[in-house]
Structure formats: structure tokens, C-alpha cells
Nucleic acid binder design. Structure first.
Lengths: 351, 351
DNA sequence: ATCACTTGTGGGAGCGCTCCCACAGCACCT
DNA sequence: AGGTGCTGTGGGAGCGCTCCCACAAGTGAT
């Protein structure tokens, strides 16, 4: 560690000062041009830009960070092991949205995994050093200490989803309640009589809301909710299999299943197949996320689409606003800083 | 852009100077302790460490970067669109190896995609600003300008694979020739008579070497190589399908296929199934990479395992050595800076 | 003519480190 | 005694920026 790499100041990189000399102006003026300040005359701006081009000047990020006390970087923190990250299409969609929106700016995106204690330790250190201007927090569980750490360090942050109905951080969520409601309404509309649900992890607020939506839709249709038809999965394929097995035991006559994620639906499908139940003839199946899995399943899976990419974009917008604002977070309301985007049912052959 | 975030110097973060005052020593001494210099007496070191702990001191990275002209960050550059990154298990394995090895150090890893012109433009800017101490380059094609850009900017870099037999950059490759040779030898040993191969993109040196290994194995067994049995794919499933279709037309009597990647083997399998060829009874199939696809295929796919995670670790080791060394790259030989790791055939039911 | 702004500009001060020179103190040789 | 090393230490200089104060020059109202 700390093997001081030999210096590398090889006569090369021009500095602000050199650009200023070349353009025949002062340091301050060059800085203003570089940073797009409007308080520069057109002629001066042109001269500076020419000098920048001639010298191939590129600002020194470290110097800027030191002087301005900002890093021009934000972190996307994934509190999951890397395997989850690659397995869940959710993350790649999110990353695409975030990346696209950030491409408009000079900001750099860092991807940080915090899946185990060691990584979390490192992350805490990293945040304490204020190496990023803001943080995007995806896939947070109710009891995660990370959000509070961020508030305490006064680091601007935006969370995907919410930890509870009274989320204190700026957030971007999708309307899980309405999405689940629509899915179950759809199943009812197709004349399904016994509708079960495979829930996600209930320490994830969104998963809870999907169960709430499921219940509300049944009640609105005058059906009684049978709690034995609500079985938790854990968002994995294996969890979906287990839950489906359990459901078939509890209620062999069920004719529809609403799964809290496509991956769990895929697990459920396997079990249904093994037991000789046809989809959708015997049992209708609906998933959540509208991921690639849903489109490629046999039969193609009806699913609720979350606008994940759009959520990513929205998170960036919110975060950049947070960073620009920078008043003590406590002194502000959450008005307009908590978004809920609509979900949409995508009907396919499985229901 | 350039919306100057308001300052945030809130009385909080302690500086080196404050730690020095508290410990009753000079700035230099604290710096030495922080950086693990041996030239500090035990008593002083203890005093400084106590002060650091009491004040909760965390070094300011920007100041350090400015003064020492290093960033303590390296970039993993993926010259592919993000979709490829998530689709190819290669990348996630690589990332795991790299991440694990880097966890031992203070270095920060940045993941940068350069899949289109715009992203490449941005990357070039990024590198010109010397925002990283070194670069890991994965999945590079023969004509990619990135490696040369890195040499020109004198940024330490390590490449995965090689662009050609005369690669000039430090590199970590796997022995594609031997892997392919072993695969074909295995097929011959099982009594297969007509062995075809689906090659990867031939602008990837490793793909070429696999074809070379295929040829060499046949020749060593006294077989003549029929060039009509060598069909290029493009590393995609669809490419595998096309190639397999072509092969069956050219040579309906073939009884074995060596595919240059598992993904292409999956495509080939589909076509074989459609045409009623049983695997392995009628046609034996061997893939490359030993990815999850291979293990989950029906029947499980014999494949050549590359130690990708290990390659990632090795790349980090090489890169850190490059960064520590830092003499003009041209003045050094490549001795010991180009690794070739062994591949291993994993036999399963498909052959 | 004077005052009051506004606009554009130069450059000092300072951000928090690392590097390195200088030097004190102590050992061990001639 | 006088060298000749070490080891440990303090602190000046400087990294390349941004921020901000000062001020010149222009504009318009009084």
C-alpha cells in the first residue's frame, strides 16, 4: 500500500495559467470560460477557447475538486452481492437510465457494491471521505442503515423505492399498489375464481404494496381474501418454486397466480408444468417487472411493467437538484422530491 | 452543467494539520504515518494514530491527488454496449476477480463503457484528464484504437487477451490454442469422424487461436482439415444458429461440432434439435467458456473452462506493478508482463 | 457634471495534501 | 577529537484550481 508512484509531471499537461498567458487574459477569466460563466465578453471567450484548443488543455480534476470542494462524481450504490446485480434485469435497466441521463452532464458515475460487511465498511469509509457529491441508492430494505448514514454525513441521496410510507429521503418509486391492483383486476376480468399471490420479500416496501394491491382488488370485487393464498417468496426463482408448491398443496383448486416478480413467476411456471397444469388453460399466471424473462417465457408472461429506465433518469434529475440546492436537508420539505411513476399491465398469453 | 454547488465546508472535517496539532507533531510526520512510512518511531506513530481516531480523520482524496499526482483509481474499460456486458457471463466473472483482488488495496475501481462513438469520446476526454492511474482493457478487437491512445498518453494499461501474437501491451490471456486442441482431441477420442467448428469473430485473436487449435488437433491425428467445416459465428446465439444451419447444408454427415463459445453452442443446439439430430448420439457438441449456460443446457454442455476470475486477479497484479514502476514504457521489455493461463476441458453429457 | 449601477476583468488567497530539504540527536568508526 | 553515517522530525514550497474582492470602463439617470 502507499507505494508512492513516481511522479509523472512529464512536461506535458498545460495548466490554466498557461492557457491564460496564451490567450492574453487572467486566470480568473479562463476559469470563467471553462465553467461557462455568462460574465465574459464574446471576444474574450473566443480567444480563450482558441488557446484551450491549441494547447489541448484539460482541467485537472483533483485541483478543481480541492478548490471547489466537489467531485463531479456520484455513486450508484447497490446493497447486494454482485451476482444479484447481474441476475436481476432491474439493475441493468436502472443503470441504462441513469447512464443515459448522466451522459448529458460532466458527472462521473461510480458503481459500488455493498453486498457484505466488508464492502459496506469500505463504502462507509468512502462516503466519510466525501469522494462523491451524491448517492443513488437502489434496492434498499426496510432496516438498512445506509440511508441514515447518508443523512448524517449530509450527503445528498435519492433512493429507489421507499422504505416505508413515511420515507424521509427524496425517492423515486413506481405505483406498486396500482400495478398489482390492475393485474388482479385483469385476472378477475378473465373469470378467474381462485387467485393466489406469491409475494416478494416483505421487508421491501414495494413488495408489501403489491400484496396490498392484490387484496384491494379482490375486496373491490366483493371477494374475500383468503390469507392462505398469500405466500412469500424471496424474489428468486427457487423461492417462486417453493411458494408455488406450497400454494398447490394448500389450495389445489386455484386457477390463477399473481407473482411479485417475473423471476418468481418463472419458478412457479416450472412447478405448474411438472404438476401437469396448463398455462393459461388451467392456471393463469401474471408476473411483475416485464423483464426479458417475461417476453421469452413459454407461454409469454403477462406482466406489470415498471418504467425502470425512466425511474433511473428521474433519480438523476432529483439528485442533481439536491446537489445544486445544498441547504441543510432538514430545513426543507419533501414536496416534489418524492416521485411515484405509473405502472402498466402488459397482457400476454399466460393469462 | 457547471452549476456551482454551494460550498459545504461545514466546520466538520478535520485536516492533517489539526491531527498534527492534536498529536503534538509536525504535518510531515502525520503524513508519514498515514502513508505507512517506516521512518517513524513507534511512540510517535501511536500518538498520531490516537489523534486520527479521536478526530475521526479521513484524508482528503482531492488534496492528495493534487499533491501526489495520482488518483488511487483505476478503470475497467468495456469497449462494448452495456447490453453485451450484462449478457456475457465473461464480464461478470472478470469483474468479480478484479473486484476481489482490488479489495486488498485502497484503489477504487471505475467501470466505464465505451460502446458507441459518444461514449468513446467521453472516455478519451476522461483519460486525457488522467483521472485514473491505470486502465484494464477487456474484450479488445484487433483494430481498436484504444490501446494506442493509452500508450500515447502513457497511461499504464493491461489488456485481457491479445490483439495479435505480437501484442505490445502487458496482457493476460488464456491458452486458447491448447483449449481448442484439447476439445477436438477429446472428440476424436470419442470416435467422431466429421468434426466441424463454429468460429468466433476472427478479429478477436483468441477466436483465431481456437481455430488454429482445432486445425492442429486434426492434423496431429492425421486427419485432413476440410475448410468448408470452419464457419464463422459472431459470438451470438443467432450467429451460432446461422453457422450451424450452414454447416448442416455443407456437410449433412457431420457428427461433432466444436463451438468457439457456449452462447454459439446454444444456438447450434437449437438448430440440431429442430433438424432432429440427437445430442450426443448423432452429433457431439462442445462449447467454450464453461459458463452457466453450459451447465444448464439440456444435455449439459462439454466446454472449455477459462479461468476468467483468475485472469481478472492477474490483470490487477500486473497493472499495480505497472503503476508502481512507471518508467517510460518503451524502455522496458515485456518479460513477465504477458501471462497466458491454462484452459481446461470440462466433460459433460453433450459429447 | 455627478452619482449609481452594471459588466468584464485581473489576480491574491487558500483548498489539504505530498515532497523534500534541513537539521537535531545519537551511534559508531577512525 | 573529528568525522561519517544513520534515524526521526519539522515545516516550506508548491500542486492547479475556484472564489472573491477590487477596480476599470461603460451606461444611464439626475
Amino acid at each position: 500500500m502507499a507505494a508512492h508512484g513516481a511522479r509523472n509531471r512529464g512536461g506535458g499537461r498545460p495548466t490554466l495559467e498557461e492557457v491564460a498567458a496564451r490567450a492574453g487574459v487572467g486566470r480568473g477569466t479562463v476559469s470563467r470560460v471553462i465553467n461557462g460563466s455568462p460574465r465574459v465578453s464574446d471576444a474574450t471567450r473566443a480567444a480563450v477557447e482558441a488557446a484551450v484548443a491549441e494547447l489541448g488543455y484539460v482541467p485537472n480534476t483533483a485541483a478543481r475538486a480541492l478548490a471547489a470542494n466537489r467531485t463531479d462524481a456520484i455513486a450508484l450504490v447497490v446493497p447486494e452481492p454482485e451476482t444479484r446485480f447481474f441476475a436481476e434485469p432491474y439493475f441493468s435497466d436502472m443503470l441504462r437510465g441513469v447512464g443515459a441521463q448522466l451522459a448529458e452532464t460532466e458527472m462521473q458515475l461510480l458503481l459500488i457494491f455493498a453486498g457484505n460487511d466488508r464492502e459496506r465498511q469500505r463504502l462507509a469509509q468512502y462516503l466519510a471521505a466525501h469522494r462523491v457529491d451524491g448517492v443513488l441508492l437502489v434496492s434498499v430494505h426496510a432496516d438498512d442503515p445506509l440511508p441514515d448514514l447518508l443523512s448524517q454525513l449530509e450527503i445528498p441521496a435519492v433512493i429507489s423505492g421507499r422504505r416505508s410510507a413515511r420515507e424521509t429521503l427524496p425517492s423515486v418509486d413506481s405505483d406498486n399498489f396500482a400495478g398489482a391492483y390492475a393485474a388482479v383486476e385483469h385476472l378477475l376480468g378473465r373469470g378467474r375464481r381462485v387467485i393466489a399471490t406469491i409475494a416478494g420479500r416483505l421487508d421491501v416496501y414495494g413488495a408489501q404494496r403489491r400484496v396490498d394491491g392484490y387484496r384491494a382488488a379482490l375486496e373491490a370485487a366483493g371477494r374475500e381474501v383468503d390469507e392462505r393464498l398469500v405466500v412469500p417468496g424471496d424474489f428468486t426463482e427457487e423461492g417462486g418454486r417453493r411458494a408455488m408448491t406450497e400454494l398447490l398443496e394448500r389450495s389445489p383448486e386455484l386457477d390463477a397466480v399473481f407473482a411479485g416478480s417475473d423471476v418468481m413467476a418463472a419458478g412457479a411456471r416450472q412447478v405448474l408444468r411438472e404438476r401437469g397444469r396448463r398455462i393459461p388453460e388451467d392456471v393463469a399466471l401474471v408476473g411483475y417487472d416485464d423483464s426479458a424473462i417475461a417476453r421469452h417465457m413459454d407461454p409469454p408472461l403477462t406482466s406489470v411493467r415498471q418504467p425502470i429506465e425512466e425511474m433511473g433518469r428521474a433519480m438523476i434529475d432529483l439528485l442533481l437538484a439536491e446537489i445544486a440546492d445544498r441547504r441543510p436537508a432538514a430545513s426543507r420539505t419533501l414536496d416534489g422530491r418524492q416521485l411515484v411513476l405509473p405502472n402498466e399491465l402488459v397482457e400476454r398469453a399466460s393469462s
